[in-house]
Simulated assay, not measured.
Amino acid sequence: MKEDLSEATLNGLNDYQVNEDSYECSMTTDIAVFGYVDNRLKILLTKRSVGNFTDHWMLPGGALQANETLKDCAQKILFALTGFENIHFEQVRAYSDIERHPTKRVITISFYALVKPENHPLTLKRGVEQIDWFDLDKIPANLGFDHNQIIRDAHQFFKKNLKDTLVVGELLPQKFTLPELQNLYENILGLELDKRNFRKRIFQMDILKNTGEKKPGVKGGPMLYSYKDHE
């Protein structure tokens, strides 16, 4: 059994409550945007012409303003730096190491998003010097801040989600074959999957619809599937 808290400790709990003199710091959001191009999972990075680490590649990210939620901030930053909008993304984790930012104390909340690059052409926005897609195993060494860790964590979070639900709908065409779906899974997870077990697991999830169509131009004409929420 834990020892009882002393009266002094209990009185000290008053110091842990939020008040006008409580410590404040800046907050930012960083978004790991994943795309699937030529059977390769890629990450979107930007090189900016302003701010810290101007000679480094970075994830799209920026500061939270007083009138914004974290989601508002992520959407604002993503549009401002990439032009992408109306994209589904999920929160990953928080980063609060004391000296992670050279200017002041900053806590970052990270997100990941999934897009079809062909639906989101890259354009240089104001303050962005370069923007490009990179293979996950060919990420530039000159990354700013702790973005290498944020990318790794987002990728692991993404892979973990695959165990419970199909979260790759925005990476494939509306209609796709089972081999294409399995190839995507293998690329994301970084391992080879047994064809029979993979299909058994996918059909158990009951989220695919057989369109009754066959993929044109391919020998044998494999069946095309879609997600049931696209009906």
Rank of each mutant, 00 (worst) to 15 (best):
L162C: 10
Y227I: 09
L184P: 04
D137N: 07
N39K: 09
K163C: 12
F34P: 01
A63M: 06
R40N: 14
E129A: 15
N161A: 11
A32H: 01
R40S: 15
L41I: 04
G144D: 01
L45E: 00
H101F: 11
D153A: 13
H56R: 05
N183V: 07
Y225F: 07
K163A: 14
L78Y: 12
A154P: 02
F89A: 05
S6D: 13
R93N: 13
T28S: 04
I202A: 01
W133A: 06
K163V: 13
L78V: 09
W57G: 02
Q65H: 11
L171Y: 07
G61M: 09
F157R: 08
G12E: 10
G190D: 03
L124V: 12
D38M: 13
R201M: 14
K159F: 03
S110H: 03
F198W: 06
N67H: 11
R152D: 00
I202K: 00
D15Y: 13
L189E: 00
T165A: 12
D4V: 12
R48W: 14
N187W: 10
R201A: 15
D135Q: 09
L193A: 02
E129L: 15
Q17T: 11
I131Q: 01
L193E: 03
D206P: 06
T9N: 12
P140R: 04
N187C: 07
G212T: 06
V92W: 00
E118L: 14
F145V: 02
H230E: 11
V115D: 07
K214V: 10
Q17R: 12
N52C: 05
P179N: 03
I151K: 00
L13F: 08
R201D: 14
G212I: 12
F134V: 04
E85I: 13
I43M: 02
K138G: 05
A66P: 02
H88G: 10
E7Y: 06
S96G: 10
T28V: 07
I31L: 12
M58H: 01
F79E: 10
L193Y: 01
L64R: 05
E7M: 07
Y225V: 01
Q130S: 09
D164E: 10
A66D: 05
P60G: 09
K214Q: 12
A94V: 14
D194G: 04
E213C: 04
G217A: 04
L5W: 14
L45Q: 00
L184K: 05
R201W: 11
T46A: 11
K195A: 03
F53I: 12
E170A: 07
F198I: 03
F198Q: 00
E213M: 06
S110F: 04
P222Y: 02
E180Q: 11
G12C: 07
L193I: 03
Q130E: 15
D38C: 13
T123M: 14
Q174I: 12
A113K: 10
P173I: 02
V106E: 14
